[in-house]
């Protein structure tokens, strides 16, 4: 559980480049060059994780998405 929390935090910080405490659509688009996902796919990831659709992805929302991913997968 701690490992998952640590990973969630690491990933959130990778996206939240300026350490704002939330991730914007622009932050997500910036990952385009770093991750093998198209801008459309990154947009879809953002929309899926941003459960209240306010345009800001909080750590809680991000964490929820990551938890559901982990629970549906075999974690290495």
């Amino acid at each position: 559980q701690n490992t998952i929390q640590e990973k969630t935090h690491e990933f959130f910080q990778m996206c939240d480049i300026k350490d704002k405490g939330y991730i914007t659509r622009q932050d997500m688009q910036r990952l385009n060059g770093e991750l093998p996902l198209s801008p459309e796919e990154l947009e879809r990831v953002f929309d899926t994780l941003d459960s209240d659709a306010n345009g800001y992805l909080t750590f809680e929302e991000f964490s929820l998405g990551f938890s559901s991913f982990v629970s549906g997968q075999t974690f290495p």
């Binding site: 990973k7 690491e10 990933f11 990778m14 770093e34 991750l35 093998p36 996902l37 796919e41 990154l42 879809r44 990831v45 899926t48 994780l49 998405g65 990551f66 991913f69 549906g72 997968q73 290495p76």
Partner: peptide
């Protein structure tokens, strides 16, 4: 059900996203 299909597609793209983050962090594909 189109909603279920969209949900499955979103799960797929989320899995790709988190898998990519994991690979990036560990340095393995």
């Amino acid at each position: 059900d189109p909603n279920m299909k969209a949900g499955a597609a979103n799960e797929g793209v989320l899995a790709s996203f988190f898998n990519s983050l994991l690979s990036k962090k560990t340095g393995s594909p």
